[in-house]
């Protein structure tokens, strides 16, 4: 098999192997914190940091960690980075830390991170692992923002971002803000949104494959036409 280029290593996490929509990992925090866009951004940043750190160290130490105790070793590495994120968030952004609640600490058991350590970082070089972590983290964050956008716009009629200067940090959408579909902001809405999004991505996938097959058929047919 040909070794994928460095750019491919980064890009695969964003679309082709997107952790949420394609591999379906790390769902618990995804659904719980996607009520507001700002939460999604905060969570995404936390996951990117932990994923980068854990992929870097797992790959750096891959020749030193004995095979038998690798999982506990990975967990210690991951948990250390999660603690850093947790304390950092508590100190510099207490409101974000409060609204994410227990889910910051739960990044430890986010299957994406252990999954990448086990499936990628333990058998690849440091540079590739860092890129993989970055790609997966960005892919996770983009998916999270997409879900949060859908849920917040429909469920509350607002888009909450960071307050900056005169900008209060909340964008209001005219009609929806007075009559929001409140269920989207609740637990049920989150599950429905991810169900439909997953179906949508499946549909895109099927469509893409059909296109490829059709173009291949057309290619194989065209020479015959010429001969006729």
């Amino acid at each position: 098999m040909k070794e994928p280029s460095i750019i491919e290593e980064f890009l695969k996490g964003i679309y082709r192997e997107n952790p949420i929509f394609v591999i379906v990992l790390g769902l618990c925090p995804t659904l719980a914190v996607s009520t507001q866009v700002v939460n999604a951004l905060g969570m995404g940043a936390g996951v990117i940091f932990v994923l980068l750190g854990s992929n870097f160290f797992v790959s750096l130490l891959r020749n030193f960690i004995p095979e038998k105790i690798r999982i506990p070793a990975y967990i210690v590495i991951i948990a250390s980075f999660v603690t850093v994120v947790d304390l950092f968030m508590q100190a510099y952004s207490p409101s974000l830390s409060k609204s994410l609640g227990v889910f910051v600490q739960l990044i430890v058991v986010n299957c994406i991170i252990l999954g990448r350590a086990e499936a990628f970082a333990k058998k690849n070089t440091v540079a590739r692992s860092v890129l993989d972590g970055l790609g997966m983290g960005v892919g996770f964050t983009l998916a999270l923002i997409l879900i949060a956008l859908i849920r917040e716009v429909l469920g509350a009629g607002t888009i909450t971002l960071f307050p900056m200067g005169s900008f209060s940090g909340v964008i209001k959408i005219p009609i929806l803000v007075s009559a929001p579909v409140r269920v989207m902001g609740l637990a049920a809405g989150a599950l429905l949104v991810i169900g439909y999004l997953k179906a949508f991505f499946n549909w895109l996938d099927v469509k893409g494959k059909e296109k490829k097959i059709n173009s291949r058929i057309r290619k194989s047919q065209s020479p015959q036409k010429v001969s006729v």
Partner: peptide
């Protein structure tokens, strides 16, 4: 997808 939608309705 159908599992998520079902879970949503259960929720």
């Amino acid at each position: 997808p159908i599992a998520f939608v079902t879970a949503g309705l259960m929720a």
